[in-house]
Simulated assay, not measured.
Amino acid sequence: MTDGFEEAWSLAEPVKGWMTREQGLALWTAACRLDKGDLIVEIGSHQGRSTVVLATAARTVGATVVAVDPFVDGRLFGGSPTRQRFEANLKAAGVDDVVELVAEYSTKLRPRWTRPIQLLYIDGKHDYWTYTDDLRWSEHLAGGGEILVHDCFSSIGVTLGTIAKVLFGRRYTYLDRATSMARFRLTPPSPKDRLRVIAQLPWFLRNVGIKILLRLRLAPVAKIFGHDSPYDPY
């Protein structure tokens, strides 16, 4: 199932973003499990690094990607210039024909959405309320469908949402993670499944601690905890 991933990653890696190679492989593998005519919904695209991986995999199985991103103007988001780079990156990778862009807030689009989804990837706004609303896109997934979430155990809002909706919920089962990218299945969890979510919380607390150290400009201390980078753990 990894056949073709190296080529996909060579197209995606030059695109600015925070998704790692290991996480890209997790997306690729999940997308390659789909069938012809299936639909992938990606919430949060930025400049298209993850989109390129998903779209390249989608092409191999005959699936399609819908990228949902409002491309909001402002210092933290980039707005129209980011959208232009996104579209240029897809074209450069040769996957623009596999991707349908919906430039809208995921929370506003979701109530109107009617198409079935076979794979859901969430990397939108990381606050608790937006993330838990984005999980509701799973209402369009068939039972057993997969959901991948970026920054799941490195963002406070996303982790709190996961605790509320996965650990204490009845719809999602935690499967595994590629660093901070977690994979869930739309199926009721067992007690053992819930324990596996709890087992991830110490790693999450480590990531929060590292973020605090970086903001205090204590990178040498963060290095003691295994984080040798000026950037937040992703």
Results as ranks from 00 to 15, higher is better:
L195T: 08
I210Q: 07
R170E: 14
S190R: 05
W203R: 14
G157S: 10
P220R: 03
A92K: 14
P220T: 04
G4A: 09
C152T: 09
R217L: 01
E146W: 03
P191T: 14
G209F: 06
P230Q: 15
R136T: 12
A92S: 15
W129Q: 13
T2P: 03
P202G: 03
V98C: 03
L195Q: 11
W129E: 15
T173C: 05
P188Q: 04
H140D: 04
L39R: 11
D123E: 09
L101I: 05
G145W: 03
S45L: 09
A219P: 00
A93F: 12
M19T: 08
D193N: 00
T56C: 15
D133F: 02
H227A: 12
T2A: 01
E139D: 13
W28T: 10
Y174S: 03
T60P: 00
D73K: 07
A58P: 01
D38C: 08
W129A: 14
L167E: 06
T56H: 15
R196C: 10
P188F: 03
S138F: 01
L27W: 04
V166L: 09
R83A: 10
I210K: 07
V197N: 08
I212H: 13
P191G: 13
S155P: 06
K192S: 06
F153N: 06
R194N: 03
P230F: 04
W9P: 08
P191M: 13
